[in-house]
Write a protein that binds this DNA or RNA. Structure first.
Lengths: 193, 193, 193, 193
DNA sequence: AATGAATGAGAATTCATTCAT
DNA sequence: AATGAATGAATTCTCATTCAT
């Protein structure tokens, strides 16, 4: 069944391409025709690969959960905390478009699930967990509360972007974070004594 | 002699009541009929007070920008940093529903403005600025970068709720924040010497 | 019951004022609010004087049927045919706005009656007959076929305005009509011998 | 392979079929649902072929401007003026339904354009000009003023139909017209001497 | 597989009319 | 009498979805 592979491969390709479209307009606001057009296919074809709009969106979010947070791992080797933090912020800054879009899609998905009375989606949690794990490994931090703090801070920074905050100085933020981290490790070391 | 109605007062009342509705479903997903029903009026009446769905939503966001962040000011008197931070987190925890909804509405508004090719809305910025000013005054902090850090952190914490994070331990987070703050003030004092 | 006189007088005043409004937009396209606004009253007041939109329009058309075709009679005294014809055309030209509007309203009324399956309205006929009688008296012509010809010609001339005909040369048309009339009278006289 | 439909051909077919519907009820009074129903299609299909009600109506009027005034040319060969005139009136009488409807549509269009503050439509003029050209060629008359007279007369005759005039005697009218024409040609010939 | 024409339920919005004041 | 707020049915138009080709 080589055909099925092709079918599946193409489906995923469409999913990836639809990411921007959903992020730009939002699930409820975008139409299937717009999606089809954006993907360069007919609506008929779109429905050939996905049973409907809702399923398409769900699969997109699941795709996000499966997608590699590829870049994170690159930087994690044997550097000082300061270097790591700086590298992380550079990475965030460089991909802020992507992260912002992912955030918007997740917010959209959250609302959609709520609308339909469903419990908070395990898919969102999965995405969240994986990012957390990546950050944990990258910075060598295990304390869940401190991890939550870090995640919140970086996610929140992206939110500020959305809120229209005047140009964010990622360098300065990195410096603050480094201070936090150094302090954290100092204290942690003390505690472990 | 017309029916005696304070048009403007009633309009604002409707706006306030529509907050939950828009937050729950999202701008694009909710219908004017649903809004009308939720407000307990007919669609005709809704259109009597607002020229259209878009205007209604915009006025809602503007209302948000004008609304008092009343509760913040209460706690700001002569307490230690630790007390203030603890109080702030309690406040966030208690109002997390409201703050989350506001966040969703702002994200929605952001998308809607983008969809229409408008520049990033000054209204969002106004909301953002006011919250920042409130936090600044409350905690007695002026450094914009540190303020941004704080805002990001607290906003990001709310985002984690949305992402389906298992019960967030606001107490533990408060502790972390206090550590940060104490460290910040210590350092700041040193620098000023 | 002096009040009733006032009521009735005011009603007619409103009718007269509504003539332009209906002519400009058409019965179906104009809204009662627009009419009210155009008349400088509230919709409530409008409904106080007329039971509804349809009745208002019907009364307007009836008002047209009752209105004096005042100006026509002025010119009818002891003049030559050429003079009369010329005078008539000047009159048409001067009032072409009014006549055009009347034409539009009558066409509208015709359609509305048809829509409701009613027979061709006697009211329209009444207007038509009165105009015919006026022309007959004015030009001293009795032959119904020739009168019909005359009416058709002048009404048709107005239609040409509506069709966007470049500036119509009423002088030239008057000359043609005079030729027709003179010829008609010559022949008629011969026939009567 | 899409369903094989000649989009443009079908669009024109719909236009032609919508002629009666618009003439019967008027642009503002007829609803798109009614049009769709009258054409035997769904509203969705109607909107698939036309961007909106206004565009549909405009295209209809343009279609009228392009439509052949086919029948006119038939009769124009080598006959006496009397025969031509008689033939014309027979033609008008036979198609009076069609001409009346065209007149109503044009009046409607005129109002609609005015409503929107547009200048007098070139489309109406185009229709008008083409009819004029046809009549000119048919009767062999060039004098624009005399042509205007003829057009006005015949159009006006149709108007009388609308005004509810009792049965119009087209034979008698033809006789009058013949008189006019003969007189016109006689005089014209004299002038050319 | 792929297309896009067709559908009709449902969205935003309007409007004649009613009615409390 | 006069006002204009309130209503909800009806209008224009959209859109997810289906289906013949």
């Amino acid at each position: 069944m080589p055909k099925i592979v092709d079918h599946d491969r193409y489906r995923k390709e469409l999913l990836v391409k639809s990411f921007d479209l959903f992020a730009e307009k939002g699930y409820a606001a975008i139409t299937m025709r717009q999606v089809a057009q954006g993907l360069g296919v007919s609506t008929g074809t779109l429905y050939h690969y996905f049973p409907g709009k809702e399923a398409l969106f769900e699969q997109l979010v699941e795709e996000l959960a499966d997608a590699d947070i590829a870049n994170f791992s690159e930087l994690s080797e044997g550097k000082s905390i300061a270097e790591l933090a700086e590298a992380e912020f550079k990475l965030i800054e460089q991909n802020r478009e992507y992260f912002l879009k992912q955030m918007l899609i997740m917010a959209d998905y959250y609302q959609q699930q709520r609308r339909e009375g469903k419990e908070i989606s395990p898919v969102l949690r999965r995405i969240c967990d994986r990012v957390e794990a990546a950050v944990s490994k990258m910075l060598g931090i295990d304390d869940p509360n401190f991890l939550l703090f870090l995640m919140s801070y970086t996610d929140g920074l992206l939110l500020q972007e959305l809120y229209g905050h005047r140009k964010i100085d990622y360098q300065a933020q990195a410096k603050i974070l480094i201070g936090m981290l150094e302090n954290y490790f100092k204290q942690n070391t003390k505690n472990h004594d």
